[in-house]
Amino acid sequence: MSFQPVKFYQTGTFTVGNRLLAAEERSVQANMRRTNSINSGHRACQGCGEALGARYAIDAAMEATGKRLIAANATGCLEVFSTPYPETSWQVPWIHSLFGNTAAVATGIAAAMRVKGRSDIRVVAQGGDGGTTDIGFGCLSGMFERNDDVLYLCYDNGAYMNTGVQRSSATPAAARTATTMAVGEPPGNVFGQGKDLPAIAMAHGIPYVATATVAELRDLEAKVRRAMEFRGARYLHIFVPCPLGWGHAAHDTIRIARLAKETGVFPVFEAERGEVVSVSKIRRQLPVEEYLRPQKRFAHLFGKAPRADLIARIQEIADRNIRRYGLVDG
C-alpha cells in the first residue's frame, strides 16, 4: 500500500472524497480547485479511461510540484482527442512530439531547465502503450539508462486505439484487435512472452517504477506524489480501459479496471531502484472470467463454443502475477 488508508469513515479512502474527511485526507480530485489539466470539450469517446487517467495523473503532478510542470506528449489518442489544431484541452504547459520520441523530447526539456537553473520546474512525458512499449521504446530505454530527470507516464489501453485498434506489444493474450482477429488457433492475440514494461523499467535500476489503475484514485495520486520526491528517471504505468477498443459499456470503465486488479490480471505495485517495495493487495479475489466476460474483445472465449482452455491459460497468467507480487495474503 503506497499510502496510509483512512481506517473507518464510512467509505474510508475508497471514494474520491467524503464530507467527513479532513481536507488533507481527501484526494486531489475531490478539491474544487484541482487543475482540471484536461478541460471539458475534449473529443475522447464516452467513458474514456485514458482521459480520466491523464487528468488524475497530471492534476496530481501539478499539485505535487506547486504547478511548476511541463508535459511532453506522444502522438496517439491522448494527443488527438485533446489537441486537434488549433484548439486544446490542456491547462498545463504542453509540448507535442512525434509518436516515438516523447522520452527524448522530455529529456531535452529537462536539460533546458537545468541549463536555465530552473530545478524547480519538473518534467513529465506521457503517451499510450503503442508510443511507449513499441515505437518509443528505444528513446524511453535511453532516458532510463541516462537517468534523465523525467517522470514518464504510460497510459496502457492495450492497443493502437487512435488508428483503429491494432495490436501493440501491450495487447493481452487472446484479445481480438483489428490485426489479431478471432480466427485461427489460438484465436485473437498470441500467447507470447508479452512486453512487461514495468519489469523492463525496473531492470534499468531507475529510482522509481510503479503501476496503477483508474479504479484506485488514491493509490494513483500517492504514486505520482511519491515519484515527484525523486530526481532521475521514473516510470508510472497506468491501466486505462478503452470502451471502444475493448468493447465494454462506457459506464464500465472503472469497473473493468477494478476487475483487472481484483483478478490479478494487472498487478499494482511500486518499486524503488529495481526492488518491489509495496503492492496493492487484492481485496476480493475473483476468477479471470469476471474480467474477460464483459469485454467483446474476449467474446470468442465464451459464446457457443467456450474456450475453457484459453481462459485457464489467462488464469495461469493472473495466478503467476499473484504469486510473484504476493497480491493475496496467506
Binding site: 464510512q10 467524503n18 475522447a44
Partner: peptide, 15 residues
C-alpha cells in the same frame, strides 16, 4: 447523496 465526491472525481469530461 452523502457527498463522497465520487461523481466529481470519476467524470472523464469534468462535467
Amino acid at each position: 447523496c452523502f457527498e463522497c465526491d465520487n461523481c466529481y472525481g470519476v467524470c472523464p469530461d469534468n462535467a
